[in-house]
Amino acid sequence: MDTCYIETPLGHAKIVGDTNGISSVSILDTNVELSTVIPESLLDCTTQLKAYFNNQLKSFDLNLNPEGTVFQKKVWNLLQQIPYGKTISYLDLSKQLGDVKAIRAVASANGKNPLWIIVPCHRVIGSDGSLTGYAGGLHRKQWLLNHESEYKQQTLF
């Protein structure tokens, strides 16, 4: 597996994959030495992530190869169908799977998503509109939702 580290507005990201696809993208809570050379197998991913953060990309077109159970992969596939700038509740996601009682399993699969941003688990919120659970931290989830919002928050200073 190839690995590289890139800088994002939310911290350093670790990207892992090979010619079979990207297996994980994660945000780190510590700084690491950034990659000076990006492996060929990760080049499209790093390019698309940079374009996403520069407001030049709303949908990723990458070969993905995450490890997970059949159920987790089913949830992750549904997550990829959530449009840029939109959100969905865990309950609505479980309804799409055909089982409203699966809400906890859906939340668990969402939390185990190994493909930060590319599989947009940050677009899943509580039924009451609250920001609930996010492996990268709620501050990052809020940042990503603001980043994707058509109504950008302006700062005064």
Rank of each mutant, 00 (worst) to 15 (best):
C4L: 04
I6T: 05
I6M: 14
T8S: 15
P9G: 10
H12L: 00
H12W: 00
A13S: 10
N20S: 14
N20K: 14
I22H: 01
L28M: 12
D29W: 05
T30F: 15
V32C: 06
E33Q: 08
S41C: 01
L42Y: 04
D44K: 05
T47L: 02
Q48A: 08
K50G: 02
K50C: 03
K50S: 11
Y52C: 08
Y52D: 05
N54K: 13
N55W: 12
L57C: 02
K58N: 03
L62N: 07
L62D: 04
E67R: 10
G68E: 08
T69S: 15
Q72W: 05
K74H: 11
V75M: 08
N77S: 15
L78D: 06
L79E: 00
I82F: 10
Y84V: 00
G85K: 01
K86D: 12
T87C: 11
I88F: 00
I88T: 05
S89Q: 06
S89N: 03
L93H: 13
L93E: 09
G98A: 11
A102V: 02
R104H: 09
R104N: 14
R104P: 01
A107R: 07
S108V: 04
L115T: 07
W116H: 14
W116D: 02
I117Q: 03
I117E: 01
C121K: 09
R123M: 07
I125F: 12
I125P: 04
G126K: 11
S127V: 14
S130A: 14
L131R: 02
Y134A: 06
A135E: 08
A135D: 02
A135C: 04
Q142T: 03
N146R: 12
H147V: 06
H147D: 07
E148G: 05
S149M: 06
E150I: 04
E150H: 12
K152W: 12
Q153E: 10
Q153V: 12
F157L: 14
